[in-house]
Design a protein around this nucleic acid. Structure first.
Lengths: 179, 179
DNA sequence: ACCGTTGTGAACATGAGTGTTCAGCTGCTC
DNA sequence: GAGCAGCTGAACACTCATGTTCACAACGGT
């Protein structure tokens, strides 16, 4: 129930960031008064959505053993379904106005960046900045979610698609190595 | 002058999509009245920003000879500086509510998708959907712009970074081929 | 049957953004 | 200097989201 509310609230606000609280309440199938009781102000609601998104993404990252060989594979697998939450964190720039949220946002990526940096000694190209590789990884995850949301991509195909593009790129030469 | 107005309006609305027209006017260094004379309503302003963004991206695409060998290279080079406009088109989902804008948005990518499709016969992997490759290309361009905006990436480095990641991926194996 | 909890619609006051008008100021051409 | 065009701040009425309150209905436990 409660999770359902945050879920639809997220999607409504993503479709139209200026949607009124009445719209959110209606979409969630609850009265505006009820919504207000849970989240006294609009800022509270958005803050709650951000916090929940941070929690979910954080859990996803820390649920993966970043020292194992297929860490990135597991990471992508866990992150793709969180598409809307990631989109929320990306598309509400003013979240950084809140001190605590801002800290959590920057802290969130750090273990991933560290992982990438470590892998640059072995499996990953060392001639690219770690932040760039991380960014590209997230971009792939997010693009995959977009494809799923648009109905163009099967959820089960997503991780493979993201990973092969991430590792090998789209040039014809790279494809021969892998199956 | 006029281009300066649309420019700052774009960046202000990107930083805070709910910014008031007064904020936009102040940021652009003009009176709210003057802004209103040019764009009678808020919707008019946003529509104008979208139209200009579509124009610019459209010009960038059509300024490239898509039949030449380095079409993608030229495309990336032209698109990266248009980062804010692309971001605007991506982050204002409600633009699709307007019929004409929606048509232009979907039409815009078509030549690029066609180009990718053609190249899948030769230089590009044929085991990936054309729309996916296109998406990844745009994601790279956008990520590069983000890096530039954050001051982490030198504008002149951007195209090379995007292209090498796009073609070869980030796996260590792929890097040996190129310089 | 009683009562606390929870959700609900209706209603209200408030504040902010918006659209609009107007009179005054600047800078330009003739 | 006369006239004109463009820009400006100030002020106004209006709309609408918002925050808040209240009384009522539904439900579950005792």
């Amino acid at each position: 129930m409660s999770v359902q509310l945050l879920d639809t609230a997220t999607s409504v606000l993503l479709k139209d960031p200026t949607a009124s609280l009445g719209d959110v309440a209606k979409a969630a199938g609850v009265g505006r008064t009820t919504l207000h009781k849970r989240f006294p102000t609009r800022a509270d609601l958005i803050h709650a959505l951000a916090t929940e998104a941070l929690d979910l993404v954080g859990e996803a990252i820390s649920s993966v053993d970043l020292d194992t060989d297929d860490a990135i594979e597991q990471l992508v697998e866990k992150l793709v379904p969180l598409g809307p939450r990631i989109e929320f964190l990306l598309r509400f720039p003013n979240l950084r106005d809140d001190e605590r949220l801002s800290v959590r946002l920057t802290t969130l990526d750090q273990p991933v960046i560290d992982l990438i940096s470590r892998l640059q000694g072995t499996r990953l190209r060392a001639d690219l900045p770690a932040w760039w590789i991380t960014q590209i990884l997230y971009a792939g995850v997010y693009s995959a979610w977009e494809g799923i949301a648009a109905g163009r991509l099967a959820p089960l195909d997503a991780p493979r698609l993201v990973l092969t593009t991430f590792y090998l790129g789209v040039s014809d030469a790279g494809a021969a190595d892998r199956s």
